[in-house]
Amino acid sequence: NGDTSPTVSMAELDHQAQIISKSHLETCQYLREELQQMSWQNFLQDEVESYQSKPREVMWQLCAVKITEAIQYVVEFAKRIDGFMDLCQNDQIVLLKAGSLEVVFVRMCRMFDSQNNTVYFDGKFAGPDVFKALGCDDLITSVFDFAKSMCSLHLSEDELALFSAFVLLSADRSWLQEKLQVEKLQQKTQLALQHVLQKNQREDGLLNKLRCKVSALRSLCSRHTEKLSAFRAVYPDIVGTHFPPLYKELFG
């Protein structure tokens, strides 16, 4: 009947929050404890220089591989969200095609060291200078700034899990066939997020701050697409033959 505001009990919201938190922890690629243990491992200057002196296409390929690995975990996360696999196959693909990289950027704050402005990459913590060979300094700076601002919100794992699910279940993506179903699922996830924020006694404005992050994520992803197009215009064969097939499928 077009009503997208489901009546959901507290018990249902608790259940939804628990399932999404569990899905997140099962698919988060690295546990916080693992990352903390590695946090002292920064790239040495000669290692930084070795990344900087890589040919542009080699560094692009390396980053495409790392992004693809992270996206595979996001696909597993999506599959475990209650209701996701009940959506039609078209809409599952639409949501992952549009949202998987956004969730990778959200998850990046777990792997980010705000004090040193470094992110876990290829075995150690890397600053923006490590990615110089990509030729996308402005995008890299924006990605690091985004991670830093996400970190400043100090989200717990359950809050991060629910926000990731909220981002993934965006009902305003183009080409959805059963928009109403996605809207209901996103609404339920937002209520579960709100419920958890209240339970965790978080500040009142946090949900709004998180909503603002959605447009920042979209901007980062469209800039990634632009940079990829520019790269492909110069190196069409490299993308065609050396980039991971899933990456090409999602961003090609």
Partner: peptide, 17 residues
């Protein structure tokens, strides 16, 4: 869309481990 996203479709079909 399914035809253009065979790998993603396959990943979605694989059972969760």
């Amino acid at each position: 869309l399914k035809e253009k996203h065979k790998i993603l479709h396959q990943l979605l079909q694989n059972s969760t481990s």
